[in-house]
């Protein structure tokens, strides 16, 4: 591609300015998490801490079984990610490559599920969970999270599967490949960037979810991280440094998953180049 000489520099500056805006509020959060006495937030806010202490981090991690919540969240998120991506890949494949009766009806139903505000159906959903014996259980969380994410993930993946060139599909048919081999040998590798994206979002969805976890989890031993962080908020006063410190720690695993996912985005480019 022809590139203007200054173009790379301009592009870098634009991206850097954008990144600064993205990160500025987060800096205030980190700064506050490093300060003592944060029940009253300073105004004007501090972009850099005036008095540095790791006290909030120590408290956030050592108090109230943070490690246990962390592991619970990790388990729930990983299990949800595996289940969601596996199931959605198959359903998306079916929607992208097969014609079956009521295909559009089923797909619309799936989408309609995304449109109903979840907050109002929480009471019937809770009663259902109770009848299924899925209250106060991490597997129960995985089950409902997976069920809740399949629609979104299928929708996401369908767009990618549909883009797989028909010629490649037909070429494999000529070679005598069955559906399974096509799915595993062609669609999955070509959709790697999309699958990585789906996994990144699915992990985040399990990691971040609060309202449903609040509703079904009561046992303190089964709390996920968002519940643990919310527990730091008091009725009248909240030590913001503590909440922010816990939130900063909570962000790390999701960033790691994202960085790991990125490798596959690049791998995807390579795969595309082979075509």
């Amino acid at each position: 591609m022809r590139a203007h000489p200054g173009w790379a520099v301009v592009r870098f500056i634009v991206v850097a300015v954008g990144a600064v805006f993205m990160i500025a509020p987060f800096l205030i959060m980190i700064s506050t998490s490093l300060e003592p006495n944060t029940s009253i937030l300073p105004s004007p806010p501090h972009f850099f801490p005036q008095e540095v202490t790791l006290d909030n981090y120590v408290r956030a991690i050592t108090e109230n079984n943070f490690g246990g919540y962390f592991l619970n969240s990790l388990f729930v998120s990983v299990a949800t990610t595996v289940a969601t991506v596996a199931i959605s890949a198959m359903t998306a494949f079916a929607f992208a490559r097969f014609d079956f009766r009521f295909k559009n009806v089923v797909f619309s139903l799936l989408l309609a599920g995304l449109m109903i505000p979840g907050i109002v159906i929480i009471v019937p959903q809770f009663i259902l969970a109770k009848n299924l014996g899925m209250v106060d259980s991490l597997w129960g969380l995985v089950f409902f999270y997976t069920a809740g994410q399949i629609a979104f993930t299928t929708f996401l993946l369908r767009a990618f599967f549909e883009r797989v060139p028909h010629e490649l599909d037909e070429a494999m048919t000529v070679d005598g490949a069955g559906i399974v081999r096509k799915f595993v040998g062609l669609y999955i590798p070509l959709a790697r960037p999309a699958l990585a994206t789906a996994a990144v979002f699915s992990f985040l969805g399990g990691w971040d979810e609060y309202v449903w976890a609040l509703t079904v989890i009561t046992d303190p031993l089964k709390r996920t991280l968002p519940l643990g962080i919310a527990a730091f908020q008091g009725a009248h006063t909240t030590a913001w440094g503590l909440v922010f410190a816990a939130s900063v720690v909570a962000v790390l695993p999701v960033v790691i998953v994202y960085v790991a996912g990125q490798k596959h985005f690049i791998a995807g480019i390579a795969a595309g180049a082979v075509k």
Binding site: I122, V123, F126, I127, K130, V135, L214, T215, T218, D219, P220, L227, A230, A231, Q233, G234, A235
Partner: peptide
């Protein structure tokens, strides 16, 4: 003892009342 975040106590009570838990 079970700690419920105070801001969400009411919601938790309502859902629990509905489900008898």
């Amino acid at each position: 003892p079970v700690q419920i975040p105070p801001g969400d106590m009411h919601q938790k009570l309502v859902t629990a009342a509905a489900a008898g838990s």
